[in-house]
């Protein structure tokens, strides 16, 4: 057990955890930030996507000891009033079905728009290919990202 000082959604947090504990479980179980979802545990589905210094990473495969001083952003910290351009686009397109994968989809798309504000459909598909949606809302996800980009 060790103590870690983390910066999560702009706030300093102190966490007591084993060094190998994935950030996913630090967020969910230690800090009660349940928006980041468990899907596969092996970085294959994208449900647990968070930002580490602005880059999309799979929190199930990032041990807490590897975070160091990196700034972590989760779906809870993406915007203050659910008004990130992607969250608004998700509402406009009424994207979710069950909704479980959507936080990961939004976080992954947010990192994409950060580095490419006008992605082509091919670029959207390539960037989003690691995020599974079992309900099959892919059509709506792509449409929402396209309209978010056009509103940037």
């Amino acid at each position: 057990m060790a103590t870690y000082q983390l910066t999560i959604n702009g706030k300093q947090q102190t966490v007591e955890a084993d060094a190998d504990t994935p950030m996913l479980w630090v967020l969910r179980d230690h800090l009660d930030l349940k928006g980041t979802k468990f899907g596969c545990g092996i970085a294959q589905c994208g449900a647990c996507t968070i930002h580490m210094d602005g880059n999309a990473v799979r929190s199930c495969s990032i041990p807490v000891s590897a975070v160091s001083e990196a700034k972590i952003t989760t779906i809870e910290g993406l915007s203050k009033k659910a008004d990130h351009v992607l969250q608004k686009a998700w509402v406009e397109h009424d994207v979710p079905q069950c909704g479980y994968c959507q936080a990961g989809q939004i976080m992954n798309a947010a990192a994409l728009l950060q580095r490419n504000s006008s992605p082509s459909m091919d670029e959207i598909e390539t960037a989003m290919n690691g995020n599974l949606c079992r309900c099959g809302t892919y059509n709506k996800i792509k449409a929402a990202i396209s309209s978010a980009a056009s509103n940037l």
Binding site: I75, Q87, D94, P96, A103
Partner: peptide, 23 residues
Amino acid sequence: KSQKNVDLDEIITGKPVFGIDYK
């Protein structure tokens, strides 16, 4: 007439609405 999913805000902001989120 199309009406939006009533749980949209909870879903897109990561509120604990699923069974696995219960504590």
